[in-house]
Design a protein around this nucleic acid. Structure first.
Lengths: 199, 199
DNA sequence: GTGTGCTGTGAAATATAATGCACAAATTAC
DNA sequence: GTAATTTGTGCATTATATTTCACAGCACAC
């Protein structure tokens, strides 16, 4: 149930914050919003103070009066509108045309998603260790062709083709073509599986 | 406020449906869930029937007892659920150069990752509804330039640049350049957390 | 058939959400 | 400075959410 120091629920605090922010953004006074929502100002004061255990209907009235959906009023602050300016880790192969960079990384409780930009020089290859259990990679070839060698099978992709595979096993990339191969790669990582993100 | 035929709120019906589904998935009886949540069975019956205007606290107790977050109990059925049914969806804009296809879809308990290939003709744009709560998109521009308009901010990306943003809000893509814009897009979806060992 | 567990319904009692009003404190405008 | 507006607080009253029973229907097992 996760209460805060004052004994009020996390959800209530979210409702309080979201409502107040939206109300001020739209330039409403408590008086005006309350009347438009059809509730008493007293109630609105309590809710915005996080001191009221409002009913679904009451919160919904306020959401509507502000032109918001119920969920928008209720949801916790999202950790990421952070349009991150690239952290950028890099792997650099022996050939100049072979390298990889981490473009984006989405961190959520229980899951991580990374977006990588890869490039392999003609004839070059890359041997990877097994990722953590449960990991998946999603490849999308931008240019050239790429052979992905898994334990029991291999796939060859041309530009515009994609592939999903479990990366919790050894695998390798091979560029057997005559031109450099470029591709994007997403890694879906599970720190722990089968857990409830009780936040 | 959007009521349904029976005069009950949409939100209430969502709560009702989500709770009942989760409860059955986890094999709880009303009796058991009610006692674990610390509320009366009578109340649970009413809520599941969509006939009760419950308070935030009551819904939160039930959410916790089921190992769900408040938002998961409250939210409307998401497009994510439908996405799982369809193998390959395609959007075709009015102009020939504007279209989107679903290339890959990774389904794991609690998370879905989709890889999309998008293209917008010069001057074209696309307005999207909000995705399910908690959703994130990761864009990577292959060609041309793309403006991503969020509620409170907008970003312009050139080829080779990427962007991560929370897509549980309305947003839109604009190609303000003179050439077609191509980009890949990953969606990280949190459908539900109903991980049940049995069933 | 009987017994058992799960689910819906009714009604009275209780807890509490929600209202309305009066008033103080802070803020802004003049 | 005063006046006007907005916001927070206390309290009695009303509305209703929530509880606690008791009972009926329904399925399934023995």
């Amino acid at each position: 149930m996760s209460k805060d120091a004052n004994g009020s629920l996390e959800v209530m605090q979210n409702v309080a914050d979201n409502l107040r922010r939206a109300r001020l953004e739209q330039g409403y006074s408590q008086e005006l919003l309350a009347s438009r929502a059809g509730i008493s100002r007293r109630m609105l004061v309590n809710i915005e103070a996080g001191e009221s255990n409002a009913s679904i209907a009451t919160v919904d009235k306020l959401a509507s009066a502000l032109g918001l959906s119920f969920v928008e009023v209720v949801r916790p602050p999202s950790l990421a509108d952070k349009a991150q300016a690239l952290p950028l880790r890099i792997w650099q192969g022996e050939q100049a045309d072979s390298h990889a960079s981490l473009l984006e990384s989405v961190l959520k409780p229980g899951v991580t998603l990374e977006l990588w930009r890869w490039q392999l020089a003609a004839g070059d290859s890359y041997h990877a260790e097994a990722d953590a259990p449960g990991c998946h990679e999603v490849l999308y070839v931008l240019q050239g062709s790429l052979q992905v060698q898994l334990v029991q099978q291999s796939h060859t992709l041309q530009a515009g083709q994609s592939l999903t595979f479990a990366s919790d096993q050894v695998y390798s990339y091979h560029n057997r073509g005559a031109v450099a191969c470029a591709f994007t790669k997403n890694i879906l990582i599970y720190p722990h599986v089968g857990q409830n993100p009780e936040q």
